[in-house]
């Protein structure tokens, strides 16, 4: 038998008064499928099952979800990585309002991203060609610009669960540092000023769940540490 037991979070606001877990039997034919493939097989059984997906190769960030207790991307998570005892439990990303089934309202997450002004600011006139940047300067953006906004990190962060409106969260702060670290950006002072309050950055308690779950192997905790250093240096 290659039947996998999948327990999945269901909630349709039109018909359900409360969410519930539904059991599925999925025939994997013994293959080490990705979790997203398993969701497709489940959707063939019940077309009403709702989840987001797009690139199916881990670069678009649509299918962040909680798989056997850990956040990750369904499309690049093989069953062998998460399944224990032939059982898989799938829940939406924790801490955000559920719209339907595995689909969460990402509004708060995006709002924190927008708050850090995630775009290059440079108040000098643009040259006729590109702005020059040395390979060493450019290297500083590695590990920062690759974020895919999947929200796996922020929704695994207890500080973000408690204060999603005031704590920027690991994803937003990683992006904030991506611009602070960019040799072409001239808004460093303004960026730091907007983060000075006790919540925006300093609610990070260094729990490092963000680092443990990031499907792109990025390290928001390190970026947050760098922002703290800059804030402290700025204050003295």
């Amino acid at each position: 038998m290659s039947n996998l037991q999948v327990s999945v979070y269901r909630y349709n606001p039109e018909t359900d008064s409360a969410p519930y877990m539904q059991e599925f039997q999925v025939d994997t034919k013994g293959r080490d499928l990705m979790v997203l493939d398993v969701l497709h097989l489940m959707k063939e059984q019940d077309s009403g099952l709702a989840y987001r997906r797009s690139c199916r190769e881990g670069v678009c960030g649509s299918d962040g979800m909680n798989m056997n207790g850990k956040n990750g991307l369904a499309c690049i998570t093989p069953l062998s990585d998460v399944v224990k005892g032939n059982k898989l439990t799938l829940r939406p990303l924790p801490g955000l309002p559920v719209i339907r089934d595995m689909v969460v309202d990402m509004g708060l997450f995006y709002k924190q991203y927008e708050r850090i002004q995630p775009y290059l600011q440079n108040d000098t006139p643009a040259p006729a060609i590109e702005r020059l940047q040395s390979p060493e300067e450019r290297d500083k953006l590695d590990g920062l610009y690759e974020c895919i906004l999947c929200a796996c990190c922020s929704t695994s962060c207890p500080s973000f669960w408690w204060n999603p409106d005031k704590f920027v969260g690991p994803a937003g702060l990683l992006q904030s540092y991506r611009f602070l670290a960019d040799s072409r950006d001239t808004a460093t002072r303004e960026r730091l000023t907007s983060l000075e309050d006790p919540f925006s950055v300093f609610r990070c308690r260094g729990i490092m769940n963000c680092v443990a779950v990031c499907p792109k192997g990025l390290n928001p905790t390190r970026a947050i540490g760098k922002i703290r250093e800059m804030l402290l240096a700025d204050a003295t």
């Binding site: 775009y119 290059l120 440079n122 643009a126 006729a128 060609i129 590109e130 702005r131 020059l132 940047q133 040395s134 390979p135 300067e137 450019r138 953006l141 610009y145 611009f179 960019d182 072409r184 950006d185």
Partner: peptide
């Protein structure tokens, strides 16, 4: 159009002379 993208912040890889 490419220089505009760079001015917008696109993190292009670089040669030693700092160009794209």
């Amino acid at each position: 159009a490419v220089f505009e993208l760079e001015h917008m912040g696109l993190p292009f890889s670089r040669f030693d002379n700092g160009r794209i």
